[in-house]
Amino acid sequence: MFADYSSTELMSIFAMQGFAGLSLFSVFVLMAMGLAIIFGQMGVINMAHGEFMILGAYTTYLTSQFFQNLMPELFAASFFFAMVLAFLVSGALGAFVEWAMVRHLYRRPLDTLLATWGLSLILQQAYRSIFGAREVGVDLPDWMMGAFNVTDFVQLPINGLFVMVIALSIALAVYLLMYRSGWGKKVRAVVQNRPMAEAVGINTAGVDRATFALGCGIAGVAGSAFTMIGSTGPSSGQAYIVDTFLVVVFGGAQSLVGTIISAFGISQAQSTMEFFLSGSMAKVLTLLVVVGILMLRPEGLMALKVRR
């Protein structure tokens, strides 16, 4: 399959597909981090995670509409407002969902699967009723358009770079929060032994709510980033949820570094293979490799080594 291309062409294809993969990687990292926090830390499988992401995407869309129509002079900065708003809106819905539904189901993990799946259907229909079934696109401000021409063949889009910077900054922020702050210590204690954490004076119900809200808020930011690589529709989140679970399980549910490495590997593999093969073949090959590696390392790439 490589025979039709000259070697310079091949190099450029790899470079550009690799870079397209990096944009996908950014969305994966953000999505997977939210999911890994919720799944890895609380054991809740949040099937509605894609819908929290789409909520962030719609928030971004509305914010950019608002700035375009009412404050065009500030439109260039609208994306930053949109990201913060997306985080807050998705996080607030997350906190509400935790309070209303998820907290009653902590001892029944399979029921959370069903309940959050139901929630995802409700949210999808809500988006369809509010925003319509047609997909919407977010207009980017001028400074995000265009690309760097690295060589004649290789172009790197600016918005892709921007999304990547955001994804990595948030990954860093989450790392600091989980491993360097007092709050992160409480979260990790609750994860390891919920009743015992409560018996050393940690308000586990409060920690759970904040953790769930944080995971959903990060999904909202992922939605903001998502508006740059795809258009937003009521069921766009569905396409990402399976891949994101793949990333989380492959990386090892309790390891942030593992999540990032696995998001990188999977997005790069998909993006590069999609150019040469069909999309579904690329997926089949990725899945086969992931299944193979998980058989050798059942706890994921980066499992913590400690006596249990």
Partner: peptide, 26 residues
């Protein structure tokens, strides 16, 4: 204050972090 049967320390937290989890209460 409670010291449970089987100790139930948090295995993946460091020794210092384990003690610090108790400090949150005060």
């Amino acid at each position: 204050g409670f010291v449970p049967q089987g100790r139930m320390i948090f295995p993946a937290l460091t020794v210092r972090e384990n003690i610090e989890t108790g400090l949150a209460a005060v």
